[in-house]
Design a protein around this nucleic acid. Structure first.
Lengths: 208, 208
DNA sequence: CCCGGGGTCCACCGATCGGTGGATGCGGCG
DNA sequence: CGCCGCATCCACCGATCGGTGGACCCCGGG
């Protein structure tokens, strides 16, 4: 792609420090050119339209315009054109799934070293997927990491606020026994034994 | 400090991208010179010894050598010489307190803009404290945010792993009733009513 | 010196929770 | 159409939890 020219990259992250780090690393690299920056998802869409990059480096959790939404938006316009490499702090199951189903082409952690990062950019530009070990496991593996239903997430969230099962039931207008059933399912899917541990794992996976 | 020369800075962060961003921003600035980098607390101590900087930019949460321990270690050697500016992602009460009591001179968030960062480095180099609004509130305010004792934090942490009160008791070699008392105190201090909510708040404050 | 507060410990009781073993209706998909 | 997964509902039991009311010790201030 982009024939003889360099790989054109747009960097999207809400932290100026991180943006500078990325442009610094990539900009000085032969064969890579940073053609734009954005600090959130909404900005990203317009910057990409203006810059027509080969690759977008995208953070997921940003204030004002979620990364996943931006990915989906970019994908709606064109199925393959800007390759999207997600660059985030944690590779939780949920983040990986959301990003990849939205149409991302790769997944890399922010603690990647310079060489890894450069290689990853070239890989996605060439159409090769980039995935961390955990990301692979989260995707390929039909691992025990079953996805929670909306209802289960909702119940877990209320429990994490300190509501008792009865209070959750009244809050949702359902029976207390039903709440317990939902929680039982949550425990199984999260691989825990009680509400306290469920809240912890839920938080780790960005559910609450 | 360092008379006519530039402010000498050492950058400590486990993410290469962030380190590059910081050195990129600071290195191109007139009056600032980056004289060393480290990727964890232990490295930081030796790099500082070798580089004799005016200011250390220190991340808190890093694998292999906690930032707080490194701060305390540096402070043991000299009370004021390398000014320490903590640069982290979240300014939770606990992080602020731990860092400042360990001997940090300033507290800044990673989403700070370039100008803020440069100004902060000069400020701490000159001996002026640098604090975010939240950091100020966490320190000055004798806010309701009562501090948990070590024992209470320990119990909460085990609870968040899914241990029952009895299991926690065996784990700590104490009675189950004692565990409950500790938890009762945790609930009061955190302003919650049960273990699930305690785990959530505990996580928010960086206790677990 | 004695008082008080914080941290740690314990026993008992009623309320809640986790687990079992069901049952019904509904929607998508082969 | 039949299967499957999701959501909803129910009753019952033993285990666990949250709350109360105390106890001890240590340390620092009046």
């Amino acid at each position: 792609m982009s024939g003889a020219g360099a790989v054109r990259v747009v960097v999207v992250d809400d932290h100026p420090v991180v943006r500078d780090g990325l442009t610094g690393i990539l900009g000085t690299e032969e064969g890579i050119e940073v053609v734009g920056e954005a600090s959130n998802g909404r900005e990203a869409v317009s910057v990409v339209r203006a810059g027509d990059p080969d690759v977008v480096l995208m953070d997921l959790r940003m204030p004002g315009g979620d990364g996943v939404e931006a990915i989906a938006e970019l994908r709606r316009a064109h199925a393959t054109r800007p390759r999207i490499l997600v660059l985030t702090t944690y590779d939780t199951d949920r983040d990986v799934r959301r990003a990849m189903t939205a149409g991302a082409d790769g997944f890399l952690l922010k603690d990647a070293r310079r060489a890894e990062l450069v290689r990853a950019v070239h890989d996605v530009a060439a159409g090769r997927p980039v995935l961390t070990a955990v990301a692979l496991a989260a995707l390929a593996g039909r691992r025990y990491e079953a996805e929670l239903t909306d209802r289960e997430v909702h119940v877990l969230r209320l429990v994490s606020e300190g509501l008792t099962n009865g209070a959750v039931a009244r809050h949702l207008g359902i029976g207390e026994a039903t709440v317990k059933t939902h929680l039982l399912h949550v425990y199984r899917k999260l691989g825990v034994g009680d509400r306290a541990a469920a809240v912890r794992v839920g938080w780790e996976r960005g559910l609450v």
